[in-house]
Amino acid sequence: MENIIKKLKKLKDIQPDAEYGQRSKLVILAAPVFPKAKPVFQIAENILEILKKIGQIQPDAEYGRLSKLAILNASVAPQKRPFFNWQLAFTMAELLLILISGALINDSRPTAPNLNAQALKTEFQNLSINIQLAKIEYSQNVDEAVSLALKEITDKQTDHLNPIILESEQNKLNSESSNSKDIDNLLNQLLL
């Protein structure tokens, strides 16, 4: 019995391998630590607190400084003026009212020709006719000019091809050249 007790006591001397102990410690300390288990309801109930913690997030101070500088130095395009101008609209409305009321007060008076639909229609129709007439006139003129040119080209009796006229022109040119010789001589005398 005593022997057994001694043997059991001897078991106390068993030691783990030192290297194993070292390695195991390192691995344990390097392992990710799983968070303390909280009851599920606690996280769900504390959700508003957790959301408040998110509210502590701040942007990087240097980023904020540089971004602000860039924004304030950015060119600002001039704002487009609103297309609708109230002042102009009121003025136009007033003008229109005056015109309409004027027409209503004295209905017997002929209405302004510019506002008379019939007059505008007639004017428009006349305009169309005028345009057509001008077009016809232009076409006629062009036709005449073209036919004249063609006639001149084909006609061998025309002035510019007449040999007598051509000869007289030649002589005239020669006489002009002799004049120019006289002028040259005079100029030479002056220079010398």
């Binding site: 968070p35 959700i47 913690k53």
Partner: peptide, 10 residues
Amino acid sequence: IDQRFELNLV
């Protein structure tokens, strides 16, 4: 670690 876990969840 605690907060990261909670924040990650949320």
